[in-house]
Amino acid sequence: MYQVGLTGGIAAGKSTVVQRLHRVHGLRVVDADHLARQVVAPGTDGLAQVVQAFGPEVVAADGTMNRQVVGEKIFNNPEARSMLEGIIHPRIQAARDRIIASASERVLIHDIPLLIETQMQDQFDEIVVVHCPAVIRVQRLINDRGMRAQEAWQRINAQISDDERLQAADTVIDNTKGIAELNAQTDALAKRLLQY
């Protein structure tokens, strides 16, 4: 099985690439964000551990983990962030391992926003980075998500630099020239991967 780790900074266009790889080309995608929500779903030991570490206020009225409250607790607190990652990341990894063990596909795409930050590069045959310069991503966050410029820059600066991400890349998809060009690069990647 050929395993691809796909990542990119916030608002770089990673989701657009992932959706096209799956919907248009039929490639199977393992979504790390989806797994992250599953491992802290109501009734899980993951959620119980988060509550034990951060208090009952991290549970929303509907019983789910309140990601905003948790985000506020860890945003400028590396120790708290590390504690949360210690709870969630091993559970995500175990869920990914189960998917890999049962998968019949020749190629798996792993959509992992923090792939480089969590130093998972060695787990994949190829690292694909969807790239777009920070100044364009800030504009997208302002226009598409209604963020203030300061908040957008904070989100971008909380992640690793573009240079660090690009250094880890085996393949770069450049998302600076519009959707048609992005789709063309995505289609070329899919065509190559489907040959495995």
Rank of each mutant, 00 (worst) to 15 (best):
R165Y: 03
I179E: 15
I160R: 05
I74P: 00
D111M: 08
A32T: 14
I116Q: 09
V29Y: 06
I100L: 13
N183A: 13
R148Y: 04
R106S: 13
Q159E: 08
N175M: 11
G86A: 11
R67L: 08
T7S: 15
L182K: 08
I109N: 05
R140C: 07
L35H: 03
N143Q: 14
L27E: 12
D62V: 11
A158D: 09
D174L: 12
L108A: 03
T176I: 09
Y196T: 06
A101L: 10
D33N: 12
L47E: 03
E79G: 02
S82W: 10
L166M: 09
R37V: 11
F75Y: 11
Q167K: 14
V29C: 10
G146N: 05
R81E: 10
L189S: 08
Q150F: 00
G71A: 04
D174M: 11
M1I: 05
H34S: 10
P78A: 05
T118K: 11
R155T: 12
S15I: 11
I136P: 00
T7M: 14
D163E: 15
L115Q: 12
V107K: 02
V69G: 00
A152S: 07
L194K: 13
I99N: 13
F124T: 12
I116C: 08
V135M: 06
Q159F: 02
G86N: 08
R37D: 09
A101V: 05
R81C: 02
V17Q: 06
Q167A: 13
Q150P: 00
Q3T: 15
